Amino acid sequence: MKKIDIRHEMLSLLKSQSQTEKEQADNRFLEKLVASPAYQSAKTIATYLSFPHEFATSALITQALADGKQVCVPKTFKGGRMIFVAYDPHDLVETSFGLLEPGSSVEVDKATIDLIHVPGLAFNKDGFRLGYGAGFYDRYLADYEGQTLSTLYSFQRAEFEPDDYDIAVKELLIDEK
């Protein structure tokens, strides 16, 4: 199956989940994630501001802040550049993609980010991911040396060959009830 077809199929599956099952899975994800050694040892965590069909990162952000961690979220620029900016719920703007992102462009130094929670539509057995196709995360992660982790519903696994520029996620938390 071509990557574009996998993306379409996964997006359809994500959007067709029952809200109750999704919320239960998201609660299990949060429990697993905050119990993980990567989370426990991290002082600074980067995550994304999720679409409704993705793992609800708002609970992760709330928990991380309550745990005294610095939280940062992505800001994208034309030309494919992405940075992480300290999360401020009062400084969010909607992008042309319909996502919220920081209004600020004050970048958090990549070397200070201990854990990046990486989004994705599909993941293969080696941790390579298919995102939405813009390549923001692969470019950002190319020289990132910290821990990466993704949360995925069991149906988000797929077989595909990564491209040379794809970067594998180091740890996958899979919801398998």
Rank of each mutant, 00 (worst) to 15 (best):
M1G: 09
K2D: 08
K2F: 01
D5C: 00
R7I: 13
R7G: 01
E9D: 05
L13I: 06
S16Y: 05
S18A: 07
Q19P: 00
Q19E: 10
E21F: 11
E21Q: 12
K22F: 00
K22E: 05
E23D: 10
Q24V: 03
Q24G: 08
D26S: 01
N27G: 13
R28L: 15
F29D: 02
F29R: 04
E31V: 10
V34I: 15
A35I: 15
S36V: 05
P37E: 08
A38T: 10
A38N: 04
Q40K: 13
Q40W: 14
S41Y: 14
A42R: 09
T44C: 11
A46P: 15
T47P: 13
S50T: 10
F51K: 00
P52H: 05
P52L: 14
H53G: 03
E54Y: 11
L60I: 02
T62N: 08
T62F: 01
A64M: 11
A64P: 15
L65K: 15
L65P: 15
L65Q: 15
A66W: 10
D67H: 13
G68K: 03
K69C: 09
V71T: 12
C72G: 07
V73Q: 06
V73L: 04
P74A: 12
K75N: 08
K75T: 00
F77Y: 06
G79N: 03
M82R: 12
M82V: 00
M82C: 01
I83D: 05
V85E: 01
A86H: 01
A86W: 03
A86R: 04
Y87K: 06
H90E: 03
H90W: 03
D91E: 13
T95N: 07
F97L: 14
L100W: 07
P102R: 04
S104K: 10
S105H: 03
S105T: 07
E107S: 08
D109C: 03
D109E: 04
A111F: 07
A111D: 05
T112I: 00
I116A: 13
A122K: 10
F123P: 10
N124Y: 11
K125C: 08
D126C: 05
G127V: 04
R129H: 13
L130M: 07
Y132W: 03
Y132T: 08
A134H: 13
G135W: 14
R139F: 15
R139Y: 13
A142Y: 08
Y144S: 01
G146S: 02
G146D: 06
T148A: 11
L149S: 14
L152N: 14
L152R: 11
F155C: 08
R157N: 04
R157K: 14
F160I: 11
E161D: 07
P162T: 12
P162E: 05
D163S: 04
D163R: 10
D163H: 12
D164G: 06
Y165L: 04
I167S: 12
A168S: 10
K170F: 02
K170G: 06
K170N: 04
E171P: 13
L173H: 02
I174F: 04
I174V: 14
E176I: 03
K177G: 02
